[in-house]
Amino acid sequence: MIDILGYILILLGSIFLILSGVGLLRMPDTITRMHAGTKASTLGSLLVIIGVICLEPTLWFKLSILALFILITNPLSSSILARSTYLKHGFLNQSGIDDLKDNR
């Protein structure tokens, strides 16, 4: 029973991972690529790790520490990367609209 739950969670997670890959490939400019690439992949990898815990319940300690590490580091690194790119190049899009120009 819990195996089926694990498989369903891993399937959902891999669908999110594929969505992040498609977004990374199809989005028009850098900031939107970053948006698609990091958020969806964080959710997807967390779902996959919870599914793996359901498949092998003896590994729960190591895998939950891994999930905690991903939950701390991945949004942080994406935020820092976005901020530094904005400070250097602006928004890098074609429309030229920059809402944050005053408080750079």
């Binding site: 992040s20 490939l25 850098t30 690529r33 690439g37 990091t38 992949s41 990367l81 190049h89």
Partner: peptide, 28 residues
Amino acid sequence: LSFIRFIKGPHLTDRVVAFDTMGIIAVS
């Protein structure tokens, strides 16, 4: 899919984002 962006990406930030995403997917 993210490897294609990693090869293509015109800007440095594109490649770094693709690298990060590839790393997270490879963890799972």
